[in-house]
Amino acid sequence: MVSSPAHNPASAPDTAPLSPGTHTYRLGGLVQRYHVHGSGPVCVAHSGGPGIFWEYMRMPALEEHLTMVYVEPIGTTTDNRLPSHPHGYTRERYSSFLEILINRLEVPKVHLLGHSHGAFVAAYHALYRPGRLAGVVLYEGAPVTGPEHGEEAARMVEAFAAQHAGHPGLPGVMAAFGAMGSMSTDEQTAAVARGVLPSYFADYWADEERLAPFREAVRATYISGLDENLVPDAIDDRAALKELTVPALVVVGRHDVICGMRWGLELDELIPQSRLLVLENSGHMGHVEEPELFAASVRGFVLATASAS
């Protein structure tokens, strides 16, 4: 639980659920943390991976207008891992932990922003636990995983390789993609995440001086993608998304190799009355590549749907 205030009110820390800073509570034997920055309507942000630490999601441009609540997804630190770790991190489990956190914030409704794998979690939450959501931002997501998604990603990675043929950094990126299937440790996962990252930007090497520190700061935990019975947590939301009732903003980067234009357009087509933002000069990391446009669009969506709700 959040620590109790000291007896002296003048020296007591602010432990209100949306006070700025890091909040911690225990849930089912696990430690759950979230981090609050900014002010304004509440937007809960769920990072990707699964297993990528939350820090890369910091969005200072959004924090100027919204109260951003950055979740540390279960499994990313040693004190919030399931007994079945590295297995068992299904969307249902992520969503159940997310619902408890949202309820603790003590506001009628929040907006939920999920990036990459976090967008799959956010879509699931909006479909099956919509009651506390004023809106959902599906940022670099897709309606499916599995072979179809993998084939599209492979095609986009091949196009990236052709575009950057001869660049001295390309062999390292391709080697990292080749190592994805054999990851089994936190160290390997972090190395692969950093290794493939140049392909996740529209043009990483043209802006390497600015983006290299972001790349080096990425931290990751190995999570298998299997449930407790070692069965893949397969996703196909195409039918369900046609019935989504939560207002949705779909965000996709024109140059994203993992959850690119095909999937952004399909999400927008499937979801009733969704809004679509195409970031023309971004890959998978639009909040870093085009932060002002990204923030303005998300802020506009949040303010409009907050008023409606």
Rank of each mutant, 00 (worst) to 15 (best):
L244F: 03
W205E: 03
T221L: 00
G135L: 07
E187T: 06
V173N: 03
N80H: 07
T78V: 15
M68T: 10
V31D: 11
R132H: 10
E266D: 11
V31K: 10
I235E: 01
R33Q: 11
I271L: 06
T221F: 00
H87T: 09
F160C: 07
Y94G: 04
A45F: 13
G300N: 05
G118A: 02
V278N: 08
S47R: 00
N281S: 15
G178H: 02
E187V: 04
G141K: 04
G253V: 09
S11N: 15
D203P: 02
L226P: 01
P86Y: 02
A165M: 12
A119N: 02
Y222N: 00
Q188D: 05
A308F: 06
T221P: 01
V278P: 05
R104H: 11
A6C: 15
L276R: 08
L105F: 07
P86M: 05
L98R: 01
M183I: 09
V137R: 01
N103H: 14
G264P: 08
E266M: 08
A6K: 14
L265C: 12
A161T: 09
Y34M: 09
A220Q: 02
H117S: 12
N281T: 13
R254K: 11
A295P: 05
V42N: 08
A217R: 11
L230F: 12
L249K: 00
T78M: 14
A162L: 15
H85W: 02
A248K: 00
G49M: 02
P143C: 06
R194E: 00
V231G: 06
I258D: 13
L18G: 10
N103W: 13
L98F: 02
A239H: 14
T78P: 14
S309D: 11
V44G: 07
V69K: 07
V298K: 03
E140C: 11
A240Q: 11
E269M: 14
L303K: 04
P17F: 10
I100R: 15
Y25G: 14
R155E: 14
F53N: 14
T189K: 03
T76Y: 00
V137M: 05
M68E: 04
G118S: 04
S199D: 03
R155V: 12
S47C: 11
G21Y: 06
A134Q: 08
H46N: 11
L249R: 01
N80G: 11
H7D: 15
F120Y: 12
H35C: 11
A304Q: 07
C259Q: 11
L270H: 07
G131R: 13
L98K: 01
G48N: 02
S224T: 01
Y34N: 05
V218R: 07
V136W: 00
F301A: 00
M156E: 15
L226Y: 04
S39N: 14
P168Y: 04
G131I: 10
D14T: 04
M1A: 14
E208L: 03
P247G: 01
A12P: 10
R33S: 08
Y139E: 04
P60S: 05
